[in-house]
């Protein structure tokens, strides 16, 4: 049983990483056919940094992801605080609406927003409404539920007396939030922001329906390559992206581990002190 599980896990990991290896190897290939190895080169990486168009698309993707995740994190954190203080019936209603973009197939969300923007376009008499702002609005919309679903549990875990204690000590409600509560829910806010950022960066389906020719992101451009063969520098770009993400994840894990160790030590020290006080 255990051996079988281990075997399947190994197979799954190989299965998950084979295409990534193919992409990484292709980025060092001198030929342009991904399936035929012709020789080693770093040429594609040099090409990549010379391609202003590709770099602009990457920048577009980054701008949209950063802005969308920031706006969603702010709106979402505010909303979580508000929803949390609602009565249960109202809360349930709002959470049902929050669930809609989470459950809905992406294509339906994309199509519905595209129809809304088309409608707004004819209403406001703007000819090509699809562009930067429609893309940003769509990204904020699908990011919001992720922020709320990662902040809400932290609010629920939080000790309700903390706020009262802060206010007893003379804080205004605003100070109580910025000095005390925000630190308690920070892990939720950060994980919501990170999740939004990655969802935005990788989103293709919704972006595809709400972006115009004026402002597109990297995934939408890659999709348009369906007819023509993919340029090998794209492989180089994604190999680099993969390495960056890998390093960020490893760094975050190490930081977390350090943090956890520190907390254990702090707790021990605290216990030691109170123990002595008891004697």
């Amino acid at each position: 049983m255990k051996r079988l599980n281990r075997f399947i896990t190994i197979i799954v990991l190989i299965f998950l990483y084979v295409p990534m290896i193919v992409l990484a190897v292709a980025s060092f290939n001198t030929g342009s056919d991904i399936a035929i190895w012709e020789g080693f080169t770093l040429h594609q990486y040099a090409e990549l940094f010379r391609d202003a168009n590709l770099l602009r698309l990457l920048l577009n993707s980054l701008i949209i992801s950063v802005l969308a995740s920031l706006i969603a994190t702010m709106l979402g954190t505010m909303a979580s605080l508000g929803i949390f203080s609602m009565r249960s019936r109202m809360r349930r209603l709002v959470m049902t609406v929050t669930d809609i973009p989470m459950t809905n197939p992406e294509i339906v969300t994309g199509v519905s927003l595209a129809l809304l923007f088309a409608f707004a376009g004819t209403f406001l008499k703007i000819k090509s409404i699809l562009g930067f702002f429609t893309l940003l609005i769509a990204h904020v919309t699908f990011n919001l539920p992720y922020v709320i679903l990662s902040v809400m549990p932290k609010l629920a875990q939080m000790d309700g007396d903390l706020r009262d204690a802060a206010m007893d000590l003379g804080c205004t409600p605003r100070q109580a939030f910025f000095k005390v509560l925000i630190h308690e829910i920070m892990p939720g806010i950060i994980s919501g922001a990170l999740m939004s950022f990655t969802m935005s960066l990788d989103d293709f389906v919704i972006s595809y329906f709400v972006s115009g020719s004026g402002f597109i992101t990297l995934p939408v451009e890659i999709y348009s390559y369906t007819k023509k063969p993919l340029q090998p520098k794209i492989y180089a770009l994604f190999t680099l992206l993969f390495i960056v993400i890998l390093l960020v994840m490893v760094a975050m894990n190490l930081l977390q581990m350090k943090d956890a160790k520190k907390r254990v030590q702090a707790r021990r020290a605290f216990r030691g002190r109170t123990g002595r006080a008891g004697v």
Binding site: V12, L16, P19, D202, L218, I222, Y223, L241, F242
Partner: peptide, 12 residues
Amino acid sequence: IMLPMCISFLLR
């Protein structure tokens, strides 16, 4: 397990 999801699913 999570890492591959960070790379564009179109490319994969």
